[in-house]
Write a protein that binds this DNA or RNA. Structure first.
Length: 570
RNA sequence: GCGCCAGUAGCUCAGCAGGAUAGAGCAACAGCCUUCUAAGCUGUGGGUCAGAGGUUCGAAUCCUCUCUGGCGUGCCA
């Protein structure tokens, strides 16, 4: 499993999306040239959304930034540029405003044609394959230890990583989703011990109390499963064979469980990489050998250390313990080297809150080994607090007290869970309110957004029964759209491709959830105020239906990037 | 001690690629269904953007320090 889902979705076609903000930058640049003024590099030209409506649809501070160098006052420069730019048919009006802003009002004609573009592009609206230009990106996420069920932080990582991958793919990156299975090391020994202990208990053999074993029902379940398939003969195996057998079976069960749970969370991986296999290929020895060639390691207190402090880490780190075993940084470095060797242009690691101390070590190691740490992008997810009846649920993995992803999906469903995980910025802690996520009311943002989509489907159904047919629509009807609310909606739709492009470089997936909530709000308000379908005004109705269709397209596309369904009926 | 992340309305948070009057939702109160799904909408109140300096024409946004909270920090991964 894992398959090639993401490859299939990655179109080879190149579509150049209309990203208005870039066009405006270009026009400013040309304008400076035409006026024989010294133009800065295009990347330095700043165009943004003004906060206040009367400041236009877009605004630039270029005159404020440039005035000094050119030797004009900001206002004079702004006026010059505004006059020159107002000739452009893209704008209905370009004005200069104190202290030197240039405000752009997009011409209605352009707004109407945006609507046409959206409905023509459909599923492709919001994609911009030129942005990523086929650059290869590896995203590693979840990578949970196979020592227990997936927890809520794993769930947050799953939702975040998968959606980010979708967004990068929409921007023309070639993305591989990867899951690293930590199926080796001390934790696995602990797991085996815990299960063995449970096996003994089930067979009424005397048991020792383990100091730091894993607890929880799943341990008992795995033990019971092993007894069922292997029989009591397992007790007669040699200690080593028995441990191996338990380890093989337990890992198979746990990893399959992870795969199944992720699949019901609509998250699929292209690659599953096993730490154990890497180790068996001798990569640990290879890394040690490479490190030793660099001369950046030394012996102290019976252990072997890496000079990570010379490479940005706060201190040197132990890489081999006094008992001769390696610390986890070594296999981890071995794993990351494979990422470099596979030739990715960008390597993204999505990590849980307990891993941030890990980043400097890893970066230092990568640099010592001669690879460019700048290719690596780390995204740290902060912890997830589960709220039930306004109280934080205390969780502990070792004690077996935790909310699993599976339980979360059963309780609130995949759609709501994914949406909730994507509402907050990745580097802030997230309170997940189970009661709220279960609610089917306006308080619950995921239903609010989905409802807007369903409502439009319902309006279309109604239109069909009123004999308003899409094929009767003519572009000139769009001129009947003239209310502020209608233009506001179109302006908002126009920003969608810019938003997706922005997220693909900042990784702020939460901006998409808030955008969708805002868009749904604009639509619900519009719906409440104006009747969409009205037999007496056929052309107006068709124009409004066309607008609704565009809203529906954007909501559906946005939800698809988040991995959330867009129902036609609720 | 050191490092990372955060501190914005009563609560949960947006905004932070420097910009022109700091935004939502919840909670509170007052309204809207013979008309396309009331899972919706309208209105009212509420803020020294933790504090102090600095950079700038301009700072919630960038820099420094202080305070508060979470997490991590030489042989767990």
């Amino acid at each position: 499993m894992g398959g090639t889902d993401s490859q299939k979705k990655q179109s080879k076609g190149i579509i150049s999306e209309v990203i208005l903000i870039n066009i405006i930058k270009e026009k400013i640049w040309q304008s400076l040239k035409a006026l024989k003024l010294k133009a800065p590099p295009k990347s330095k030209i700043n165009v943004e959304y003004p906060k206040h409506k009367n400041h236009g649809d877009y605004a630039s501070n270029i005159a404020l930034n440039l005035a000094k160098k050119i030797g004009l006052t900001p206002m004079t420069l702004a006026k010059k540029l505004a006059t020159h730019l107002s000739a452009d048919p893209l704008f209905s009006e370009v004005t200069a405003a104190e202290p030197g802003f240039i405000n752009f009002h997009i011409a209605n004609k352009i707004l109407y044609s945006t609507l046409k573009d959206i409905n023509k592009l459909g599923l492709k609206f919001g994609t911009n394959y030129e942005h990523g230009a086929g650059k290869r990106v590896l995203i590693e996420f979840v990578s949970a230890n196979p020592t227990g069920p997936l927890n809520v932080v794993n769930a947050r990582a799953a939702a975040f990583g998968d959606s980010l991958a979708n967004i990068l793919i929409a921007q023309g990156y070639y993305v591989e989703r990867e899951y690293y299975i930590n199926d080796a090391g001390h934790q696995i020994e602990l797991l085996v011990e815990s299960i063995e202990n449970e096996l003994n208990r089930l067979d009424a053999i005397k048991v020792e109390e383990l100091e730091e074993g894993y607890k929880g029902e799943y341990i008992t379940e795995i033990a019971a499963h092993i007894l069922e398939t292997e029989g009591t003969i397992i007790h007669q195996f040699s200690k080593r064979d028995k441990a191996q057998k338990i380890s093989d079976l337990a890992l198979e069960i746990l990893i399959n469980d992870h795969k199944q749970t992720l699949s019901s969370f609509k998250v699929y991986f292209d690659n599953w990489i096993s730490e154990n296999e890497l180790r068996q290929k001798g990569s640990v020895e290879d890394v040690l050998a490479f490190l030793s060639e660099t001369g950046k390691i030394y012996d102290k207190d019976g252990a072997v250390w890496m000079c990570s402090s010379e490479f940005g880490d706060s201190k040197d780190r132990v890489i081999m313990r006094s008992d001769g075993t390696v610390t986890y940084i070594i296999p981890d470095l071995a794993y990351h080297i494979t990422k470099y060797k596979r030739g990715f242009d960008r390597i993204i690691d999505i990590l849980g809150p307990d891993h941030h101390g890990h980043i400097p070590k890893l970066k230092a190691g990568i640099e010592i080994l001669g690879y460019k740490p700048s290719l690596m992008h780390f995204i740290l997810l902060q912890q997830v607090n589960i709220l039930m009846n306004d109280e934080k649920v205390k969780m502990s993995k070792r004690e077996g007290r935790l909310i699993t992803l599976k339980q979360l999906i059963d309780e609130v469903g995949t759609d709501a869970a994914r949406f909730f995980f994507l509402m907050r910025k990745s580097n802030t802690p997230l309170d997940f309110d189970i009661e709220l996520a279960k609610k089917r009311t306006a308080d619950n943002p995921v239903y609010y957004v989905q409802y807007a989509h369903a409502r439009i489907a319902s309006i279309e159904k109604n239109a069909r029964s009123e004999r308003l047919r899409v094929q009767d629509f003519k572009p000139e009807y769009l001129q009947r759209l003239g209310h502020d609310e209608e233009f506001d909606i179109i302006r908002m739709l126009m920003k969608y491709p810019e938003l997706i492009a922005h997220i693909s470089s900042t990784y702020d997936v939460n901006l998409l959830t808030s955008y969708l909530i805002d868009l749904a709000g604009e639509f619900h308000r519009y719906y409440q105020k104006y009747k969409i379908v009205n037999k007496r005004y056929k052309r107006l109705s068709l124009a409004r239906l066309f607008l609704c269709k565009a809203v529906q397209t954007v909501i559906r596309n946005g939800l698809a990037l988040l991995g959330i369904s867009a129902p036609n009926k609720m």
